[in-house]
Simulated scan of single mutants.
Amino acid sequence: MPGKRSNRKDINHFCCPYCDRRLWRLGSPKHFVFYLEAQEIQKNVHIPRKNASILASKGAYVDLNCWIEDFFCGEHGKFWMKVTRDKSGKLLAAIASTDDWQHSTKTINPEIPNPSVSEFSYRISRQAGIKEKTYLPQ
């Protein structure tokens, strides 16, 4: 009985929220989500209020069952999804919101350009797909 210990059946496939085609992982690092207040911990991690207040008193709580990751759709391109592992071990994915970005580790706000990049470089990079027509004299 070859392959009886194979974990191939346990691979999670995610679908594009716009076209329901398969999403492909781009190999980006997982940006885990953290919570600072007891109410946030209680609401998002689903633990009792007392345990949440104990975790909040120790500092930021990093939820290892929830992270933001980069995915690619053949039709809609590249976008970021918030992946959550439930108690049964199944992974669920949804588009990452602005609030998720504010609560993630090692990330910058995607709506604000990188401050270390000059305005000229940023403007030129936005025009990468635009090609000017050049006319040759006849």
Results as ranks from 00 to 15, higher is better:
125 S>C: 09
56 A>M: 05
20 D>N: 13
85 R>G: 02
15 C>K: 07
58 K>Q: 12
19 C>N: 11
7 N>G: 13
12 N>I: 02
66 C>T: 10
127 Q>C: 09
98 T>D: 14
70 D>V: 00
57 S>N: 14
137 P>W: 05
7 N>R: 13
46 H>E: 09
102 Q>S: 14
47 I>H: 10
90 K>I: 12
99 D>A: 14
115 P>T: 06
51 N>E: 14
127 Q>W: 09
83 V>D: 11
57 S>C: 11
31 H>D: 05
102 Q>D: 07
84 T>E: 06
137 P>N: 11
132 E>G: 08
122 Y>M: 11
126 R>C: 12
63 D>R: 04
65 N>F: 03
15 C>W: 03
60 A>G: 07
68 I>G: 08
41 I>D: 00
14 F>G: 00
84 T>R: 08
12 N>C: 05
43 K>L: 11
81 M>D: 02
111 E>Y: 03
23 L>D: 02
81 M>P: 03
128 A>I: 07
19 C>K: 06
85 R>L: 09
20 D>R: 13
129 G>P: 08
25 R>G: 08
76 H>C: 13
69 E>L: 03
6 S>G: 02
94 A>G: 07
105 T>G: 05
84 T>D: 00
26 L>A: 04
40 E>L: 01
119 E>T: 11
3 G>R: 03
106 K>Q: 12
82 K>G: 01
137 P>I: 15
60 A>Q: 12
31 H>I: 01
6 S>H: 00
120 F>A: 13
95 I>M: 15
62 V>A: 02
135 Y>M: 08
58 K>E: 15
8 R>F: 01
99 D>N: 13
19 C>E: 06
43 K>Q: 14
15 C>T: 04
76 H>S: 05
96 A>V: 02
22 R>K: 14
29 P>L: 00
127 Q>S: 13
121 S>W: 06
50 K>C: 07
55 L>H: 12
136 L>D: 13
42 Q>C: 15
117 V>E: 15
136 L>S: 11
47 I>V: 14
124 I>R: 15
6 S>Q: 00
8 R>P: 00
50 K>I: 10
8 R>S: 03
33 V>Q: 07
105 T>M: 11
87 K>P: 00
129 G>I: 08
111 E>R: 13
24 W>N: 10
14 F>A: 03
59 G>L: 06
82 K>N: 05
31 H>M: 04
71 F>G: 04
122 Y>D: 14
13 H>F: 14
62 V>Q: 02
107 T>G: 10
77 G>F: 12
89 G>L: 01
121 S>M: 12
112 I>T: 08
40 E>R: 08
132 E>D: 13
36 L>Q: 15
37 E>M: 09
31 H>K: 06
43 K>R: 15
50 K>R: 10
74 G>Y: 07
68 I>Q: 08
3 G>C: 01
